[in-house]
Amino acid sequence: MSLAAAAAAGLPQALGFARAGGLGQGGAPIAADPGHGFLSPTGVEIAFLLVGLVTLGAAIVTVTTRQLVHAALWLVVTLGGLAVEYLLLTAEFIAWVQVLIYVGSVVVLLLFGLMLTKAPIGRSPDADSGNRWAALTVAVASAAALVWVVVDAFRTTWIDLDGAAAGSTEVTGKALFQNWVLPFEALSVLLLAALVGAIVLSRKAKATTTDRPGARTESGTPSAKEPR
């Protein structure tokens, strides 16, 4: 997965795409390659399967454990496992963004939230609500349906992981800044709006306590004259 090879493969693809002007010419489905098979998995598949089992196990522990802080720490394992899966799928940039954003900031935010809401250390008996069995039924049913549909649809589909990496930093950066500039900029506006919104939400309690006596004196309620 050398970067130079990725760049050499990525640029002609982009040019060819711009010339063709659409996705229509390249939509040929990949038929089953006789070289592949379920019974002879490659090393990448075995690694993906093992990391996937760890990831899924950590996810299940995350949603079932009764210790709230442990749930956040198992979430780290899940997100890190997903980053490894991205690396196995040759999407390097996404993997490091996943590590930076999710493991670095989102989990820290969640831990801060647990701390600020005075989450109990140790087992909390009421971590699960009363509709647990209904939730389990819904989850198992939807998992069965989704797995059935997905396996049935993509039974004969293989990802070609050889050659240049499909998600190296250079390829991703070129795609992002050639074709996705406008959504990228819109996203920065969204992040700014989220920043302002979080600040406003955090300041809201103080603002209402200072606003409310003034509003009451305007409405002329006698009880509003009492000192607060």
Partner: peptide
């Protein structure tokens, strides 16, 4: 579906 179960079954908002 694991996340779906968590959303439906958990009680704490975080």
């Amino acid at each position: 579906c694991t996340g779906l179960y968590g959303v439906l079954a958990r009680r704490n908002a975080i």
